[in-house]
Amino acid sequence: MFFAGAKERTYQAMLLSMLHGMGFDPLSERSTNTARIDVALEMPKTTYILELKLDDSADAALRQIHQKEYFKPYTSKGKEIAIIGANFSSEARNVSEWKGELLSESGEKIRELFP
């Protein structure tokens, strides 16, 4: 079975394939001075930064985005910055949890994206 022993990168590849299939042009593993962003997607008004986890938590993914300041390269573009943390469950073989925040250009949380 495809998901037997799947790693985080397996789920990341599937997400990227779906985004490409929908006509988007996501960046994968974009390097910053502190780490690599799992997925970055620039749209006309908003930049989306996604951190993916496997058998962890959406909170851990959001913490990583904040701690490593993945949003910094996008702060001077005059767009909203949306950060999304998602956790995949290897048992359910699906997204088990996701959370998001809208950030100001300085990286401060403005509000939750998903009530």
Rank of each mutant, 00 (worst) to 15 (best):
Phe2Ala: 11
Phe3Lys: 15
Ala4Lys: 12
Lys7Cys: 08
Arg9Tyr: 15
Tyr11Ser: 06
Leu15Pro: 15
Leu16Arg: 05
Met18Asp: 10
Met18Tyr: 15
Leu19Gly: 08
Gly21Asp: 05
Phe24Trp: 01
Phe24Val: 00
Pro26Asp: 07
Asn33Ala: 11
Asn33Arg: 14
Ala35His: 08
Ile37Tyr: 00
Ile37His: 00
Asp38Cys: 05
Asp38Trp: 07
Ala40Met: 12
Ala40Ser: 10
Pro44Arg: 09
Thr46Phe: 09
Thr47Cys: 09
Thr47Trp: 03
Tyr48Arg: 04
Tyr48Asp: 08
Ile49Gln: 09
Leu50Gly: 04
Lys53Glu: 06
Asp55Pro: 03
Asp56Ala: 10
Ala60Gln: 11
Arg63Ile: 06
Gln64Leu: 01
Ile65Leu: 01
His66Lys: 06
Gln67Arg: 14
Lys72His: 10
Lys72Arg: 12
Tyr74Gln: 12
Ser76Thr: 00
Gly78Gln: 12
Gly78Asn: 10
Lys79Leu: 00
Ala82Gln: 13
Ile83Ala: 02
Ile83Trp: 07
Ile84Ser: 04
Gly85Asp: 08
Ala86Thr: 13
Asn87His: 05
Asn87Thr: 02
Ser90Glu: 06
Arg93Leu: 02
Asn94Gln: 07
Val95Cys: 10
Val95Met: 07
Trp98Asn: 04
Leu102Gly: 02
Ser106Lys: 14
Glu108Asp: 11
Glu112Asp: 06
Leu113Ser: 01
Pro115Lys: 11
Pro115His: 12
Pro115Cys: 06
Pro115Gln: 14
